[in-house]
Design a protein around this nucleic acid. Structure first.
Lengths: 300, 300
DNA sequence: GCGATCGGTTGAAACGTTTCAACCTCCACC
DNA sequence: GGTGGAGGTTGAAACGTTTCAACCGATCGC
């Protein structure tokens, strides 16, 4: 019945009497709109895809969470797709999202060298990527100024006397984190320094993210190396655990909540406007100095 | 065209020649099946809902992750719904899932006293809940033996000489965690003990989960109370961080991965069979003794 | 008092699939 | 040589909405 569509969406005036009767019937029958029929007709699913490499990383989880909240407020649902940091899985997941006709997609991170976003963009699906800079101009991006962040990190470390600084990778191939070693190297170069290999007597480690940093601290201390007495460690993200007294990790704060919300907002307004989210937003980071960094050890 | 449906789903024989031509055309046009039309016709969406109170809790995140992986293997997608531990939001989210006609729903936890699952069950949607025991017989459940776990905890603590044991709640109203204080009280009662209020000179704390336990340790140590020298703390879940040397949390291990996979499997097979997932599975826990518990302090 | 407008209601087409029945051709069988 | 399938193809109905156009009666401006 056309009338019930009208009462549900206020798309045309309907008399008070009819409205009441319709609502009554709905209540009585336990009727629930069939969103899939609606989606088919409207050619819009009010669904966002979130393609996440690893939901266990609190930074990614936070972004996903915020996206979900923001989306929910606008009546959008969120389809969660895990890639396990594997390009083949990522590709399969994106294909599945296309098949399900999501209205937009957010990538909190992307496997290295991925061409996935343009595949979506070509199909007219707006895409926002978080925490790295995409190349496609149709891409919306929310990211931080990594060179500036690394500059601050190096500033802090050299101020403590460190000269032998290494970058600690994760094994995963996320494009986002892959730009960090380069940013570090540049910041070092500006002071005439070179990054040292991990196993080569570094006195300080820059890590790809906080999870890696904590794992590193754990491993170092298992080997009897003290942090920060023997070596300093700095993370990236500032996940809640980093502030714990026992961890007390010096790290680069990324405003994960804001980034997630912002990404969702960009995507939703692009969808509403029927175009791409071609905007680049850079959010500020802040170096949070805690107890995992300290002055370089004499003769270290 | 009916034929292309046949070539895509092998639902009827089709000649090699036609098959080739169809696949060629699909490739050429970049055709992607419209899953929403398919869902409408089939009256099945191949979509699972995961209703999660708080994606930042690693236990929940892990369960959700495993469900996603398992579901993906069977061509199912996962709709993520966050409840923020708020019954109203939970209810809204469930309504949204019903509207989207998910084929099944998993609750890694539920707000206290929720009647949501039966609302779904009445509509014929199979539901599996994780980590607590539901009352509705149509509900599938995957949970641990909390009384036994608490028994082990109390055993451990009393073995160390603790008599004044308190339970540390989270503020959240998850039904799952709400059964733990009772389980603790029972285990204590069996030894003629009563739980003591938190602020009343307890020498050991049982926490609702590891996140709370870590926060508690943090707060205690800010106040100059040493763990485990002054008080002992035990968690629940055994999230990865609990094993970190600097945290070193004694806790009850729940096999989160297995629980997530199991829940997904139960749900998927119920969907395939067209019925409810009316099975109850209890998975074993294990007390992992680490450094956050120690002998009670003389005169403590 | 007549056409235009407005509030309200309704039938029907369309969205992109699946599936059923119909059909067509060819072959084997008795 | 008709009968009965099997292999293969196709038209059309259905899934549950939205939306457009049509319609109907009443009010309004002139």
């Amino acid at each position: 019945m056309a009338t019930v569509s009208n009462v549900l969406h206020r798309t045309a005036p309907v008399s008070e009497e009819t409205r009441r009767r319709v609502l009554e019937a709905i209540e009585e029958l336990g009727y629930r709109q069939n969103e899939v029929a609606r989606s088919l007709k409207r050619r819009a699913t009010r669904t966002l895809g979130v393609v996440i490499p690893d939901a266990l990383n609190p930074f990614h989880a936070t972004v996903a969470l915020q996206v979900e909240r923001r989306a929910h407020r606008d009546g959008f649902a969120v389809l969660l797709a895990e890639t396990e940091n594997d390009p083949a899985t990522e590709s399969a997941q994106v294909r599945a999202l296309v098949g399900r006709r999501v209205d937009g997609v957010i990538f909190p991170a992307v496997t290295a060298g991925s061409t996935i976003p343009s595949e979506l963009l070509d199909r007219g699906v707006p895409v926002v990527v978080v925490s790295f800079e995409g190349r496609d101009p149709r891409l919306g991006t929310v990211h931080v100024d990594e060179p500036a962040a690394m500059e601050a990190v190096v500033d802090h470390l050299t101020g403590l006397g460190h000269q032998r600084i290494a970058f600690a990778h994760s094994g995963a191939h996320e494009e986002s984190v892959d730009s960090r070693p380069a940013a570090l190297a540049e910041a070092l170069a500006r002071r005439g320094l070179l990054p040292v290999p991990v196993k080569d007597g570094a006195t300080a480690f820059c890590c790809t993210n906080d999870v890696i940093a904590m794992a590193l601290i754990d491993r170092l201390e298992c080997d009897g190396v003290c942090v920060p007495a023997d070596v300093s460690v700095v993370g990236f993200d500032d996940i809640p655990m980093a502030a714990h007294r026992r961890i007390d990790l010096t790290t680069v704060h990324q405003p994960a909540e804001e980034m997630g919300q912002l990404a969702a907002e960009m995507l939703l307004s692009a969808i509403a406007a029927g175009g791409h989210a071609a905007r680049r937003v850079i959010v500020p980071t802040q170096l949070v100095v805690r107890g995992s960094t300290g002055p370089v050890r004499r003769g270290g």
